[in-house]
Simulated assay, not measured.
Amino acid sequence: MSHATSTTLYRVDKFTVPLAAVAVFTERLRTIQQLLSGQPGVRQNLVLTQPAGLDATQMVTIVEWESEAAMAAAKAFTQRHYAEQGFNPAAFMQEHGIRPDFGVYQAL
């Protein structure tokens, strides 16, 4: 069980993924999940899925961060990693028809 405080943040990313892209997108999500799990300040790191009709799947990632500073440091780390790999997340999602919805939330 997590212990949310006023500084705890939740990065919640929702994706509508065409069925044809589920395998490649799942692979990408697992890679980033593994990358983030090793970062300081991560309390939880979940990847969830739900059917979304006959031609798509909803996928959600939820990462609980102990602080805004921890989340910002991990974002910078991830951006460097993507640059080193030559990976462009926006182009990847556009190429595969994935519709994202990103947000940062706090517990009430």
Rank of each mutant, 00 (worst) to 15 (best):
M1Q: 12
M1R: 08
S2P: 05
S2D: 10
H3I: 13
A4I: 04
T5I: 03
T5N: 02
S6R: 09
T7K: 14
T8N: 06
L9Y: 01
Y10G: 02
V12D: 01
V12K: 03
V12M: 08
D13L: 04
F15K: 01
F15V: 03
T16K: 14
P18R: 07
P18S: 09
P18Q: 05
L19C: 03
A20Q: 12
A20C: 04
A20L: 08
A20M: 04
V22K: 06
V22T: 14
A23Q: 11
V24N: 02
F25K: 00
F25H: 03
T26I: 00
T26N: 05
R28V: 07
L29D: 01
L29P: 01
I32C: 09
I32S: 11
Q33E: 12
Q34C: 14
Q34P: 06
L35W: 11
L36A: 12
S37W: 04
G38E: 11
G38Q: 08
Q39R: 09
P40E: 04
G41I: 03
V42T: 03
V42Y: 00
V42G: 02
V42A: 04
R43W: 04
R43A: 11
N45A: 15
L46Y: 09
V47Y: 06
V47A: 12
Q50N: 08
P51S: 10
A52W: 03
A52M: 11
A52G: 06
G53V: 05
G53C: 03
L54R: 12
A56L: 04
T57N: 08
Q58V: 10
Q58L: 15
Q58R: 13
Q58I: 11
M59V: 06
V60A: 05
V60K: 00
I62Y: 02
I62W: 02
I62K: 01
V63R: 01
V63Q: 04
V63H: 02
E64H: 07
W65A: 00
E66S: 12
E66I: 01
S67T: 03
E68K: 14
A69C: 09
M71Y: 02
A73T: 08
A73I: 07
K75H: 08
A76P: 06
A76M: 07
F77I: 03
F77P: 00
Q79M: 14
R80V: 10
R80F: 08
R80N: 12
H81W: 15
H81S: 14
H81D: 14
H81V: 14
Y82K: 02
Y82F: 15
Y82L: 07
A83N: 08
A83F: 05
A83H: 10
A83C: 05
E84K: 09
E84D: 15
E84T: 10
F87A: 00
N88P: 02
P89F: 09
P89I: 10
P89V: 09
A90N: 09
F92A: 05
F92G: 05
M93G: 01
Q94P: 10
G97Y: 00
R99G: 09
R99F: 14
P100C: 04
P100Q: 10
D101L: 13
D101I: 06
G103D: 05
G103K: 07
Y105C: 02
A107P: 00
A107M: 07
L108D: 11
